[in-house]
Amino acid sequence: MDRLKRSLLDAPIIEKEGYQYFVHPISDGVPVLEPELLREIVIKIIRKAEIEGVDKIVTPAAMGIHISTAVSLMTDIPLVVIRKRSYGLEDEVSLTQQTGYSESEMYINDVHAGEKVLVLDDVLSTGGTLRAITDALDHIGADVSDVVAVIKKEGPNELDESDIDVKTLINVDVVDGEVVITDADGDY
């Protein structure tokens, strides 16, 4: 069994406002993220994502940063982090990130029309973050070559009715206090 699958099956479950939530190093930064798990995830992303000719990797702060940094190091593709604060730089683009948990403004800097980008994130749950990012990149005129999320939580999301194809490494659900793997290949 691969490390990602095993780590999810072993993930602690907490209840938050009636919602069963798994705690995982990729999505939460705890428990400890072992280098072997990160390496396995990066290799899977590189094999699965369309990275040929990509100019930049784009990821939201905060939990996409460690994954995207590792992919950047392995591919020599520069990394842009979408931040939760404005720096007021020229060509900064704001977007509203709305998830099932919160709503906030985020800011993209240093992505320009015509650039080919790979969007990476830790988890696809409600789809609010990835939808806002892809809409903003479309507004900028960037060419999104691929969108990859490491983990997809089962259930409807904002991308279901869109033409955005998100590749995932593993799909999960939480049933009766345990993580259930619904698709180990991850594509939907």
Rank of each mutant, 00 (worst) to 15 (best):
Y107R: 07
R83F: 03
T134H: 00
S27G: 13
E92F: 12
D163E: 15
R6K: 15
L95K: 02
G128M: 01
I67P: 04
K167Y: 10
T182D: 02
I108F: 07
M106K: 08
L95Y: 02
T69M: 15
A149Y: 00
T168S: 15
S104D: 11
I51D: 10
I43N: 14
G53Q: 03
D135A: 09
I41R: 08
R3G: 00
Y21A: 07
L118T: 03
S68F: 10
I57W: 12
L118S: 08
I133T: 03
L73K: 13
R131Q: 13
G128D: 02
H139L: 12
I133H: 01
L38G: 05
M1C: 03
D135H: 05
V23E: 08
K44Y: 08
S27N: 12
H139C: 00
E34S: 09
T129Y: 01
T99V: 03
A49G: 11
L38I: 03
Q20L: 14
E50T: 09
D165Y: 14
G64Y: 08
I14L: 14
K84E: 10
G127V: 01
G88M: 10
N171T: 07
E115V: 08
P12Y: 04
G128L: 00
Q98C: 04
E52M: 06
L8F: 04
D176Q: 12
V111M: 12
V71S: 13
I181L: 06
L8C: 02
D122A: 09
L4T: 04
T69S: 15
D143T: 05
L124M: 02
V175P: 05
H139E: 14
I151L: 03
L159G: 01
L95R: 03
S72Y: 12
E178H: 14
S94P: 06
T75L: 11
E178W: 02
A113G: 09
E15F: 09
K167C: 05
D165L: 11
P78H: 12
R3W: 05
Y87M: 14
V179S: 08
V123W: 00
I133N: 00
L73W: 11
G177W: 09
D55W: 11
G53W: 08
S145C: 11
Q97H: 10
K116G: 04
I82L: 01
V172K: 05
S68G: 11
K167L: 10
V172Q: 06
Y101M: 06
A132H: 02
I77N: 10
G100M: 05
D55P: 02
L73T: 03
G114E: 10
D173L: 06
N157V: 01
R131G: 07
G53E: 05
T59G: 01
E36W: 06
T134F: 00
I140G: 06
G64H: 08
T69G: 12
R85C: 10
R83D: 03
V81N: 07
P78F: 13
T59D: 01
S27W: 04
R6P: 00
L95D: 03
Y101K: 13
E36R: 11
